[in-house]
Design a protein around this nucleic acid. Structure first.
Lengths: 144, 144
DNA sequence: TCGCGGCGTTGTATTCTACAACCCACCCGT
DNA sequence: ACGGGTGGGTTGTAGAATACAACGCCGCGA
């Protein structure tokens, strides 16, 4: 077994390598939906709609970046803005039917790619890997 | 236990979420060394030097992107080019002493952050997590 | 009512990246 | 040995992503 330190270094290195590739991989898989756009749409689907500020905080992006990304997604017809009747400052962002469909399409492509890469993994290993990632990310969210 | 499909979906989602944050996280941790620069320097250290083309292939970046990144790192004094005497087309890229030091500094910051996040993991889990990531990435490299 | 704070947009500059065109050096077949 | 082909690298150009700052708008509390 690796030492604790060795394990941490490996985890750091391999996660970083993955991150470095993710952008280009997403671009090749579904050129219409960048990695950022994809994650924003996913978040909207998970959360059943949210504000731009929430997206900015969650993904550590500037609000201006989100504003422009959302503007692009709106122009594509994937997102719609719903003004909060109680507070006119707030716009709730929601997926349109087209956005939902597009997201499903991209997600399916990604899912297939992952399935292929993980084809020869034992079910138990997949399960544990998923569990570890969940655990890691949940820590990353709450902290820092 | 999760179904095979559920596990894959979770792995895809969590890896993607990590990737989306990695860039900004790196920028906050060590503003001088972007995520790309950091990974390039790391690769040079691991490989004890390599060609620009190798970096481009490994990280799925265009050779022009690598060329400019390396130019920047060279201007900063972190990388040097060594012409291959046998084949004049080839430049072997190597870390300088300053590059090694800078990389160590950034790596230490990252290592600390990861250690904190993984502080309460059992050694066995760390070991397995590291192993899974290695396995996943090695597949990603060879294929596609 | 006035001012402060939260939400979002717009102006501006920088950086990253891809694609294409190009140069130079090696290689191989004739 | 020469001429095309190939591989490695750089440069021109354009587009996208992003940050920071300034602003407008609205609501809320003193």
């Amino acid at each position: 077994m690796l030492s604790r330190d060795q394990s941490v270094i490996t985890i750091q290195r391999e996660l970083t390598a993955f991150a470095r590739r993710a952008r280009a991989a997403a671009a090749r898989m579904h050129p219409e939906l960048s990695l950022v756009s994809f994650t924003l749409l996913s978040h909207l689907e998970d959360q059943q709609g949210c504000r731009a500020t929430d997206l900015a905080a969650y993904y550590m992006l500037d609000k201006s970046t989100i504003s422009r990304q959302i503007a692009g997604l709106e122009k594509l017809g994937f997102v719609e803005r719903i003004s909060d009747p109680d507070d006119h400052r707030i716009q709730v962002l929601q997926l349109t039917a087209a956005g939902t469909a597009k997201l499903a399409e991209a997600a399916e492509l990604r899912r297939q790619a992952f399935h292929e890469r993980l084809a020869d993994w034992a079910p138990q290993d997949l399960d544990r890997f998923a569990e570890y990632l969940l655990r890691y990310n949940s820590l990353a969210e709450s902290g820092r």
